[in-house]
Simulated assay, not measured.
Amino acid sequence: MSLREDAARVLKQWPAPDERQDALRLEYGDHLAAHPHGMWKACTEGHLTASALVVDPTRDRVLLTLHRKLRMWLQLGGHCEPEDTTLAGAALREATEESGIAGLTLLSGGPVRLDRHLTPCAWHLDVQYAAIAPEGAEAAISEESLELRWFGYDEVASVADDSVVRLLDRTRALLGVSS
């Protein structure tokens, strides 16, 4: 199965949590059907990306990156690569590369949410996961970031945009962590 086929399968099977997310799920599927190269950065009409919100082992903080190009605090993630075989694997690879943390574990059940946003290269149709860091995890900054920092849940809204806040809220709901 190709990465594109895996993405189409994931999107088809994902139980969207609400009508807006379901509309995005359908839009992403239509995009893949219309653009054979819709997984790749070279698709200037837009492309799927994969990201993950990294949660610390105590489940009370998240790791955000101050993105070098966008100058915004974001979850970890980015473009799919030719060696990626699954969307979940791409999200995990990106989170591991950008955090420097080995042993991240994605939450079971597939994506947490979807977010479509315009970037300097094209529309990103981001498939967002959540990952739990192992005990003793120490983050190490990558060339993608200006800074990496752990933020308490109550701090995220003061540094990040609404898309990150919505991702955090959905992740907390799935973890059963009250707000």
Rank of each mutant, 00 (worst) to 15 (best):
G77Y: 08
E83P: 07
A34Q: 12
A91K: 07
A34F: 07
R113L: 15
L125A: 00
A130E: 02
P15C: 12
R9H: 05
S142W: 07
G38S: 09
D6T: 01
M72L: 11
R113T: 15
S2V: 00
A157I: 05
A173Y: 02
S145V: 01
P120I: 07
R4L: 03
L167G: 09
S51C: 06
L146T: 09
L104P: 12
W73G: 05
H47W: 06
D18P: 06
A33T: 00
E45Q: 05
D30Q: 09
E27H: 11
M72A: 06
P134K: 10
K12D: 03
V62K: 02
E5T: 00
T85M: 13
P82F: 11
S51W: 04
L175G: 11
L106M: 10
Y28S: 00
T105P: 11
L74S: 03
G100E: 04
V55E: 05
W40D: 08
I141E: 11
L107T: 08
W73V: 08
A23Y: 09
L32C: 01
A140E: 13
D22M: 08
H67Q: 14
W123E: 11
A95K: 02
A131K: 12
V156T: 04
V62L: 01
T96A: 09
W123T: 09
Q128F: 13
L48Y: 01
R113I: 13
D6C: 00
D30P: 02
A91F: 11
A50I: 02
S158C: 01
A33L: 01
D169Q: 14
E45W: 02
R166I: 06
A8Y: 00
K12I: 00
A50S: 09
K41E: 12
V112A: 12
D126P: 09
E45L: 04
L106C: 06
R59P: 03
A90D: 05
L32V: 02
D115E: 12
A95N: 00
P36T: 08
S99E: 08
A157P: 01
V177W: 07
P120D: 13
M1A: 06
V156I: 11
D169P: 10
W40N: 04
A42G: 14
T171F: 07
E98Y: 03
G110W: 09
V54Y: 10
L168S: 09
W73N: 08
P36D: 10
A157H: 08
